[in-house]
């Protein structure tokens, strides 16, 4: 190959950065599904909302305020959605949930258009993260390194909380068998609520983090939705392991596919998804055996 090692390092970093962004989105969606059996197609719209909140807040109080407050604001929207809609949809079948959240996509899409207009917004990368880092013989934008680090940090934190703490054990019990968990005195309903809020906040965080990289447009939620769904279906619904594995697979297949076989790149990931569904219909690492 004509490309040197640095080129491949660069591509690997790109893939890793895409994976981490998808991980932030998919972990919320997958745990919400695993715990609540709830399919939230509007998760992508929450990501778009996060980007818009971050853009608005950054205009007032700088980038860091946007980054920290946008997830809180999105979690607030999540609380509204939960008490208004999702609580009532819990017992419905998957189709009703898909449809209600599909309607929610329409509503949130037009609401962002009404509040923020159709034009793309942009956020400046903060001075601290501007510039490039010399890294394994390549120069790489500091901001992207920051995304990778943030994703890994969140993964580590979630792995610790889910695997080593009491609330994590309660969540895992709820995913495994919610009726039994409730019998053992766990307030599953409150657990659902907490997990839903955290999932929304992570979606908002993903939006806030992605905002300086991509331009903030109303349809960014729709664009990210399909990759996120692919990630959780490949990985298997409900598990942290599945979310990280799915994200890495998607990130690397997409990035390296685009370099090695540009013609096939976009079809490749769907073919992979189809293959996974044929061989293991519930994904690679489902939460339940």
């Amino acid at each position: 190959m004509a490309h040197d090692l640095g080129f491949w390092t660069l591509q690997a970093l790109n893939a890793l950065q895409l994976s981490m962004l998808l991980f932030l989105l998919s972990i919320g969606l997958t745990v919400i599904f695993g715990l609540m059996h709830f399919v939230n197609l509007a998760h992508g719209s929450l990501y778009a909302l996060g980007a818009y909140f971050a853009a608005s807040l950054a205009a007032v109080g700088g980038y860091w305020m946007g980054l920290f407050l946008a997830p809180v604001a999105v979690a607030g929207v999540g609380i509204l959605l939960y008490s208004g809609l999702i609580k009532r949809m819990r017992k419905s079948g998957p189709m009703a949930q898909v449809l209600v959240t599909f309607g929610l996509i329409f509503v949130l899409l037009d609401l962002t258009r009404i509040f923020w207009g159709d034009l793309a917004l942009a956020i400046e990368v903060p001075a601290l993260l501007d510039g490039r880092l010399a890294f394994l013989g390549v120069e790489y934008p500091t901001y992207r390194v920051f995304i990778i680090a943030l994703g890994l940090a969140i993964f580590g934190a979630l792995a610790f909380v889910l695997g080593r703490t009491q609330i994590g054990a309660m969540i895992r019990a709820g995913v495994d068998n919610d009726a039994m968990a409730a019998c053992l005195g766990i307030n599953v309903e409150r657990l659902f609520f907490i997990v839903f809020c955290v999932g929304c906040a992570l979606a908002g965080l993903a939006g806030a983090v992605a905002a300086p990289l991509l331009s903030v447009t109303p349809d960014m939620g729709l664009q990210i939705l399909i990759p996120t769904l692919i990630v959780i279906v490949i990985g298997g619904l409900g598990s942290l392991k599945g979310a990280i594995a799915g994200s890495l697979i998607y990130g690397f297949v997409q990035t390296f596919g685009a370099v090695l076989a540009p013609q096939l790149a976009s079809v490749l990931i769907y073919a992979l998804l189809a293959a996974v569904l044929v061989i293991k219909p519930v994904g690679l690492f489902p939460a339940k055996g």
């Binding site: 449809l99 599909f102 309607g103 329409f106 509503v107 609401l111």
Partner: peptide, 12 residues
């Protein structure tokens, strides 16, 4: 889309 979305949610 907003109106269609609200109608859809209401119907479901």
């Amino acid at each position: 889309h907003l109106v269609v979305g609200v109608i859809l949610i209401a119907v479901v």
